[in-house]
Nucleic acid binder design. Structure first.
Length: 825
RNA sequence: GCCGAGAUGGUGGAAUGGUAGACACGAAGGUCUCAAAAACCUUUGAGCGUAAUAGUUCAUGUGGGUUCGAGUCCCUCUCUCGGCACCA
C-alpha cells in the first residue's frame, strides 16, 4: 500500500465530512458524461454482453417503476462489465402512439413537440439515476431514420405475403377512434382508455402471425431447462402457447337440405362426431342470410342477428345465458345420423374454427342449449369409472359406445385414425385451428409510422419504392379524431404518383400500430443511423441475441410475441441466424404505494423518484430498489426501508475515518472473499436483494472492528460500485485512484475471488438425535473427513450422552462438514 | 371453469433435502443530551422453565406421505396473485 492510503482524510485535514449525496452525485454524473466513461467500444478480446430493458414510453416523467427496471438492470450490467465483459447497455424511447396524440389534443401542443420535450426531460432524469446507459446508441420510433425502416420491413413483409390487406370484424375503440389488436383488448375494454370495444367490419392491414404460429410455440424445456435454446419464464411460455392455442382436428362438410348451400364445421374431438345431433352457427356468419332468405323464419332470425350485433364484446362475455333461434333448415349428417336442425346461437364464436359447431351431449354448453330449446342430444362414450358420459374437456376419455366404425375402442387412441377415416370418406378434411389471429396493425390515428403504400385506381395497391422511403409523417395535420384517419385531411400529402403507371394515386392515410415499432428496436440500437438496412448483419452477429431481457409481465402476449415473430422474419431475410432474440427473459415485480395499493394519481399514493433523490440521494434509492424485495415480487414502498439503505451508505462513508494499515486476519479474508463470491453470483444474476444484504453483512463486520485496512475498504467499494456508483466513486477517488489522470472505479476489475480463503481452521458440526438438533461441536478442518473421530467427539458431549446412553444406536449418518445424526431406538 | 405462480415473525424477506427466520424495517430498553433528532449498544417467533444461566416444547396456510432428517420432494384441501376464458 502506498503511503497515501494509510492516511485518512481526518488525519490530513483534521475534519470529518458528513455524507451528503447532493454534493457528490451531480459532480460524478458530470464527470462520467464528460469523459464518455460508459461509451461502448468494440473489443473483440472481450466476450460481449447485451442486457436490455424494455424501452420506455416518453410520458414525460420517469416514475418509480422505470427506476426499478433500470436500476436493477444497471447494477446487473455494471457487475458484468467489471467482470470483464464488453457490455452494451443503452436505451431508447417508444415514441409513437396514442397518449402523445391525446395529450397534445388536450394541451394544444403538437405530438412531436410534446414527445421530443418529454424525451429530453426523461433522459436528464435517467442521468440523475447514475446509470451507465450509453446514450450514443439511443433511438426513437418517431425519428424518420427509425420509421423509415419500419416501412422497409413492412414492404418486405408485404412482398413475402406476411403483410396483407383484409376486411374483418375488428375491435374498434369508439373513444380513441381506432382499431385495436386482440392482444390489446382487456376484458372487452381498450387497454389505453378503458372504453368498451365494439366489433366493426373494417378493411385494414394485417401481419400474418399465423404463418409462424407453429414456430412460435415453445417446446418442452430440455434437460438444461432451455426451451428453443433459451431461458424464458414458464409463465411466459405457457401463456404464449395458450394464446397461440393450436388445436388439431377436422373440418366437416355439410349440405343444407332443400338448398344448394354447403358449409363446414370444425371439430377438435372428431371421435365424438357420431353423437352430434344438431348444428349451431355464429350470428355474424355470412351464410345466415342465404340460409333463411325467403323463408318464414327469415324475419325472426334476422332480428336475432341484429340483437346480437348490438352487444359489445363485454356484454357478450358477461351473458353466459344461451340464446338462439331456429333457422328452419336441416343439414344432412355425413356420419349417418338423423338430419340435423340448424340453429343460430350466441355461444358460437365467429372467430373460432369455422364459426359453426356440431353439437352433442358431451359438452356442457350443448346440453344447456339443447335443454332450453328442447333439442335431442347424442352420447358416444362412457366414462370407465363412474359410468357418466365423458366430455371432450375432462380429458378422461373412455370406450366409444356409438362411434361408427370405432365403437368399442379407446377414445383418445383412435383420434388419428378417425381423422384419416374422415378424410378417406371425403366427409371432411384435417384442419389445424389456432386461437391466435393475424395481427391488425392499421391505426386510424396520426402519431405513428405512415403505411408505405400507394393506392392506384389502375394498379391497385403498390408499395412505395425503397428509394422513396421514408414516407415522412407531415407536421401539419388536423389530428383531432373524426372517425377517419387524420392523415387523410392533408390533401397535399395524400396526393402521389403511382410508381407503376405514373398516374394519380393516393397515399395510405393509416399508421402502423406502435407495437410494430417496438418489435425490433433492440436491433436498431446496434447502429441507430445505419442507412442500408434496419441493421447490419455484422453488427447483429457481434452483439445479438440479447443476453438478458428485463421487463414487465404485461408484455407476455403482445410485445415479446411480436418481437419473436420479427426475429423469425429477419432470419428469413438472412439478417440473423437465430430464432429467439433474447437468451433469457426476466420479469420484474411491481412496487405498490406505501399504503399497499397499486400506485395511481387518483389514490395519491404515487412515489416520485425526484423527491426520493432530493431527500436521500440516487445511491440510497438505487440500493433500496435492489434491496426492498426479490426482483420478481410485488411489495409496497416502505419509507422506513429507504431510510435504512441511506443509513447503510452513511456507515460506508464513515468508515473512511477508520482506515489503518494492518495485517488482515484469516476471518477478515474469509468475510471478504465470501462477500465477493456472493455479490458476484447474486447481482450477476437477478438476486439483487441478497446481493445488497451481503454488503450490509460485511459492513456490519467491518464496522465492528477497531479499524479497517485500505485493502478491505477498496474491495468493499468495488463491490458497492454497481449498486451505489456515486459514493463508491467519491471515496475511491479520494483514497485509491492516484493523482494523474481520471481512472474511474467503474472501469476497474471486479476483485478476484479465491476459494482458499473460504476454508477455515475449524467447522461447526451439528449433532442430531433422530434428526433433531441436540448439540454442535467444533471440528478441525483437517479432520472433517474422518467420521469415526467426529462420532467420538460427539459422544463425548454430555448433552448427547443424555440421549444415547442405554440406547442402541441403530444408524449413524454423517454429512461431511455439516451434520452428524444418530438414529436411536 | 382451465393454466401458471405463491403462502415463512408485527412488516419486507433469507435459507444447494442438513442449525428456520440471514439482511433490513418497526418496536422496546439503554448510552449521549437541558431536551429532541442523529449516532451507538442491548433485546425482539410463541410457550414452558430458571434468581439468572441452562434447559425444553411448539412453530414455515391445511391434512397426509416419502426420508435418518422436509420451508424445500410427492399427494389432499384452503386462500392469494397473475394469465386465458361460451375455444367446439
Amino acid at each position: 500500500m502506498v503511503a497515501k492510503e494509510t492516511k485518512n482524510k481526518k488525519q490530513e485535514t483534521g475534519k470529518i465530512e458528513k455524507y451528503d449525496p447532493s454534493k457528490i452525485e451531480p459532480k460524478w454524473q458530470k464527470k462520467w458524461k464528460e469523459t464518455e466513461l460508459y461509451k461502448f467500444k468494440e473489443d473483440s478480446k472481450k466476450e460481449k454482453y447485451y442486457p436490455l430493458v424494455e424501452l420506455p414510453y416518453p410520458s414525460g416523467d420517469l416514475h418509480i417503476g422505470h427506476w426499478f427496471s433500470f436500476v436493477t438492470a444497471d447494477v446487473h450490467a455494471r457487475v458484468h462489465k467489471m467482470m470483464g465483459k464488453n457490455v452494451f447497455f443503452t436505451n431508447g424511447y417508444d415514441a409513437f402512439g396514442l397518449p402523445a396524440e391525446n395529450a397534445a389534443i388536450k394541451r394544444g401542443i403538437h405530438p412531436k413537440d410534446w414527445t421530443i420535450k418529454n424525451m429530453e426531460t426523461m433522459t436528464k432524469q435517467f442521468e440523475t439515476m447514475g446509470s451507465m446507459i450509453d446514450w450514443s446508441h439511443t433511438t426513437a420510433a418517431c425519428f424518420p431514420d427509425y420509421y423509415k425502416w419500419n416501412q422497409w420491413i413492412f414492404i418486405r413483409m408485404y412482398e413475402k405475403g406476411l403483410a396483407y390487406r383484409g376486411k374483418m370484424l375488428s375491435n374498434w375503440c369508439p373513444q380513441d377512434q381506432t382499431v385495436l389488436a386482440n392482444e390489446h383488448v382487456e376484458n372487452g375494454k381498450c387497454w389505453r382508455c378503458g372504453s368498451e370495444v365494439v366489433q366493426k367490419e373494417i378493411e385494414q392491414w394485417f401481419i400474418k402471425l399465423t404463418e409462424y404460429a407453429d414456430q412460435l410455440i415453445w417446446p418442452e424445456p430440455d434437460k438444461n431447462g432451455l426451451s428453443n435454446g433459451v431461458d424464458w419464464p414458464i409463465s411466459v411460455r405457457v401463456a404464449q402457447n395458450q394464446w397461440i392455442g393450436k388445436k388439431e382436428g377436422v373440418k366437416i362438410k355439410h349440405k343444407v337440405i332443400g338448398t344448394d348451400l354447403e358449409f363446414e364445421s370444425f371439430s377438435a374431438y372428431p371421435a365424438w362426431s357420431w353423437a352430434d345431433r344438431y348444428i349451431v352457427i355464429a350470428p355474424e356468419h355470412s351464410i345466415v342470410k342465404k340460409l333463411v332468405k325467403g323463408t318464414k323464419e327469415e324475419k325472426k332470425v334476422m332480428k336475432f342477428v341484429e340483437e346480437m350485433s348490438k352487444k359489445t364484446d363485454l356484454e357478450r362475455q358477461e351473458t353466459k345465458e344461451k340464446l338462439g333461434v331456429f333457422t328452419g333448415r336441416y343439414a344432412k349428417d355425413p356420419f349417418g345420423g338423423p338430419d340435423m336442425p340448424i340453429w343460430l346461437a350466441n355461444f358460437a364464436l365467429i372467430n373460432f374454427g369455422t364459426g359453426i359447431i356440431r353439437c352433442s351431449g358431451h359438452d356442457e354448453r350443448d346440453i344447456e342449449f339443447a335443454k332450453k330449446y328442447g333439442l335431442k342430444t347424442g352420447e358416444a362414450v362412457v366414462k370407465r369409472e363412474n359410468g357418466n358420459a365423458a366430455t371432450p374437456h375432462d380429458g378422461m376419455g373412455g370406450i366409444l359406445k356409438d362411434s361408427g366404425p370405432f365403437t368399442g375402442r379407446d377414445v383418445w387412441e383412435v383420434v388419428p385414425e378417425v381423422i384419416n377415416w374422415i378424410e378417406k370418406q371425403e366427409i371432411g378434411i384435417r384442419f389445424v385451428n389456432y386461437h391466435i389471429h393475424d395481427w391488425s396493425v392499421s391505426r386510424q390515428r396520426y402519431w405513428g409510422t405512415p403505411v408505405p403504400m400507394i393506392h392506384c385506381k389502375k394498379d391497385g395497391i403498390i408499395p412505395v419504392p425503397d428509394d422513396q422511403l421514408p414516407v415522412e409523417l407531415p407536421y401539419d395535420v388536423d389530428f383531432t379524431p373524426k372517425g377517419k384517419p387524420p392523415l387523410a385531411s392533408n390533401k397535399e400529402w395524400m396526393k402521389v404518383k403511382c410508381p407503376k403507371c405514373g398516374g394519380e394515386g393516393l397515399r395510405d392515410p393509416e399508421t402502423l400500430d406502435t407495437f410494430f415499432d417496438s418489435s425490433w428496436y433492440f436491433f436498431r440500437y446496434l447502429n441507430p443511423h445505419y442507412d442500408k438496412a434496419p441493421f447490419s448483419k455484422e453488427d447483429a452477429k457481434k452483439l445479438t441475441p440479447v443476453d438478458i431481457y428485463f421487463g414487465g409481465a404485461e408484455h407476455t402476449l403482445g410485445h415479446t410475441l411480436y418481437a419473436r415473430f420479427f426475429t423469425r422474419f429477419f432470419k428469413k431475410l438472412g439478417l440473423v441466424d437465430f430464432d429467439e432474440f433474447a437468451k433469457k427473459r426476466v420479469q420484474h415485480g411491481v412496487i405498490l404505494g406505501p399504503d399497499g395499493a397499486r400506485m395511481s394519481k387518483s389514490k395519491g399514493n404515487v412515489v416520485n423518484p425526484d423527491d426520493v433523490v432530493k431527500e436521500y440521494g440516487a445511491d440510497a434509492a438505487r440500493v433500496y430498489l435492489c434491496f426492498m424485495m426479490p426482483y420478481d415480487a410485488t411489495a409496497p414502498w416502505a419509507p422506513g426501508g429507504m431510510w435504512g439503505t441511506y443509513r447503510f451508505l452513511k456507515r460506508v462513508w464513515d468508515l473512511q475515518y477508520n482506515l489503518n494499515d494492518k495485517e488482515l486476519s484469516k476471518t477478515d479474508l474469509f468475510e471478504m472473499h465470501s462477500a465477493i463470491l456472493k455479490v458476484q453470483e447474486d447481482a450477476g444474476s437477478t438476486k439483487f436483494n441478497t446481493g445488497v444484504s451481503t454488503l450490509m453483512k460485511w459492513i456490519n463486520y467491518l464496522s465492528a472492528k477497531e479499524s479497517i485496512t485500505p485493502e478491505e475498504y477498496k474491495k468493499f467499494l468495488l463491490l458497492l460500485a454497481p449498486f451505489a456508483p456515486h459514493i463508491a466513486e467519491e471515496i475511491y477517488q479520494t483514497y485509491f485512484a492516484g493523482d494523474k489522470e481520471f481512472k474511474s472505479i467503474h472501469a476497474q476489475n471486479w476483485p478476484l475471488f479465491d476459494e482458499k480463503y473460504l476454508t477455515t481452521e475449524s467447522v461447526t458440526i451439528v449433532i442430531q438425535i433422530n434428526g433433531k438438533l441436540r448439540d454442535s461441536i467444533q471440528v478441525e478442518s483437517t479432520k472433517l473427513k474422518i467420521q469415526s473421530e467426529i462420532e467420538q467427539l460427539a459422544k463425548k458431549s454430555s448433552k448427547i450422552q443424555k440421549y444415547i446412553e442405554e440406547k442402541k444406536i441403530l444408524k449413524t449418518i454423517y454429512i461431511p462438514g455439516k451434520v452428524l445424526n444418530f438414529v436411536v431406538a
